[in-house]
Structures are given as structure tokens and as C-alpha cells.
């Protein structure tokens, strides 16, 4: 069943046409990769889904409901939780308090307590550092906190923006393993990444963006099979990428 789809989405930053006629769909239980170079419009796409950016035209439909232009709070309540680029955990709050903040919209206290316990089992590090300020954790651990915090609202779709950014390769592997694990728990994930190889390893399908357009979409195998794409966008493409768009800067 299609859980989330975008149709003919157009987003502008002033005169900058950041996302052009973008179509995208995510089935329930899938990991969908959104890949491409810096400034390709990946983050902008994610922000339009979560309501942080208002598209000029086109539609975002979640679970049969048009959510285009809805406020982030409302989108969250419907079941779409973001894991932002740079993790954005609350540094001076403890790990436990971060988790509770993730459930800020949940009224049921028992559910919150149960979920905290559940994620502490899945991410043992959270239990270990539960009463420490989250800012004291390492980058990889902070990423765990960010993911667990997003899960606390019991979302149906997790939007992840560059979870591997700034992490050591070993940690990155852990994070990707974790994302794959989330799928086995029935979570649907939209994964925005520059790390194309790792993304293709775990994704069910992927969209390749270039200059705000979908350049190619398909299964990881199909994408890998396109040698040209590999060379143009996945290899040296990142260094010769166009100047960063506001999407990645914000």
C-alpha cells in the first residue's frame, strides 16, 4: 500500500527552483533512498514533506490525506517524524529527557514509559547513558538518541536526513544496520543520503536527484546497473556539484 507520495512537487527559495516537478512514492514497510549530490534538492524534498518548507505547487499525500503545507506539528501528529541533519538533539537535556521530548505529543504516560524501555533494549547505549546530558555523547551515540527520539512519537514514516554525516565509517555502518533493523520492525523509512553506496545496500528502492529533478529511480540493482549514472553522479559528481542550495544550508 502506498503510504506517502509526492506529485509534481515544486519548491522555490526565492528565485532558486530547488525542487522541480518531483514525483515520489513510498510503500508501507519500505526503505526508500533519496540520493544525489549536494544541492540536488534532497533535503528540500524532506522539508516539504514535514511541513518545514511550503511548496509552490504539487501535493504531498500521506495515507490518502493531502498534507501539503501543513504545520510541522500537525504532520508529526499524523505519523511522520523527522531525524534532522546534524542530529539536533537537545544537548543540555539528558538522554532520557530527549526521549521524553520525542513523545511530547503523546498523552499516554504508560505508552511513553513502555516505549522508552523498548528503545533502551534496542539501543543499549541509551540505557547506559540515560541520565547523562546528551551533549556529552559521541556523534554516533547522539545519532542513536536522535533516531530513538523520533521513534518515541510512534511514527509510521521516519524521515532521515543524512544520518551518516560527520560520522566515522565504522559508526556509519552501525547506523545503516540500525536502519535496516527498523524496517524489520515494520517502520517505513525515507532516507536522504549522500553516501550512495551504503544507501543502495539497504534500500528497497531509491530516487536519484539532480538539480531538483528525479534523474532516475528504481531498485538498487537497477541503479547500480546504470554505469553512466554511477560515474556522473555517484563518483566524481559530488566534488563538481553545483553550489550548495539553501536547502542544505538550513
Amino acid at each position: 500500500m502506498t503510504l506517502l507520495y509526492l506529485s509534481k512537487l515544486n519548491v522555490f527559495y526565492g528565485a532558486n527552483h530547488a525542487v522541480r516537478d518531483l514525483d515520489l512514492q513510498i510503500e508501507e514497510g519500505e526503505i526508500v533512498g533519496l540520493i544525489g549530490a549536494n544541492g540536488a534538492g534532497k533535503s528540500t524534498t524532506m522539508m516539504s514533506i514535514m511541513g518545514a518548507v511550503k511548496p509552490r505547487s504539487g501535493a504531498v499525500v500521506f495515507d490518502g490525506r493531502n498534507i501539503t503545507g501543513m504545520a510541522p506539528e500537525d504532520v508529526l501528529k499524523l505519523g511522520i517524524a523527522p531525524v534532522m541533519e546534524g542530529r539536533r538533539i537537545f544537548q543540555s537535556l539528558t538522554v532520557g529527557e530527549n526521549l521524553r521530548m520525542g513523545a511530547a505529543t503523546v498523552a499516554d504516560k504508560d505508552q511513553v514509559a513502555k516505549d522508552i524501555e523498548r528503545w533502551c533494549i534496542l539501543f543499549p547505549i541509551l540505557k547506559e547513558r540515560y541520565d547523562r546530558p546528551a551533549g556529552n555523547l559521541s556523534g554516533g551515540q547522539q545519532q542513536m538518541v536522535a533516531v530513538a527520539r523520533a521513534l518515541m512519537s510512534r511514527p509510521r514514516v521516519l524521515l532521515m536526513d543524512e544520518p551518516s554525516l560527520g560520522l566515522a565509517p565504522l559508526i556509519v555502518a552501525d547506523i545503516f544496520k540500525l536502519i535496516a533493523e527498523l524496517r524489520s520492525l515494520g517502520m517505513t523509512v525515507l532516507l536522504v543520503e549522500q553516501n550512495v553506496r551504503m544507501t543502495l545496500n539497504i534500500a528497497d528502492r531509491a530516487y536519484l536527484l539532480n538539480l531538483g529533478r528525479v534523474e532516475f529511480s528504481g531498485t538498487p540493482d537497477q541503479i547500480r546497473a546504470e554505469a553512466d549514472i554511477e560515474r556522473t553522479y555517484l563518483g566524481g559528481g559530488q566534488t563538481s556539484a553545483p553550489a550548495a542550495s539553501p536547502a542544505t544550508a538550513s
Binding site: 510541522p72 508529526l76 534532522m84 539536533r88 543540555s92 520525542g102
Partner: peptide, 16 residues
């Protein structure tokens, strides 16, 4: 306290 840390993110976890 969270808003003093990161105001935007506080809104993004659904806080008014």
C-alpha cells in the same frame, strides 16, 4: 529547556 537549546527542533518534535 529544550527550546533554549534548539528552538526549531523543539517545534519539530511537535511542541507549540
Amino acid at each position: 529547556r529544550a527550546a533554549a537549546d534548539d528552538f526549531t527542533m523543539t517545534r519539530l518534535v511537535g511542541v507549540n
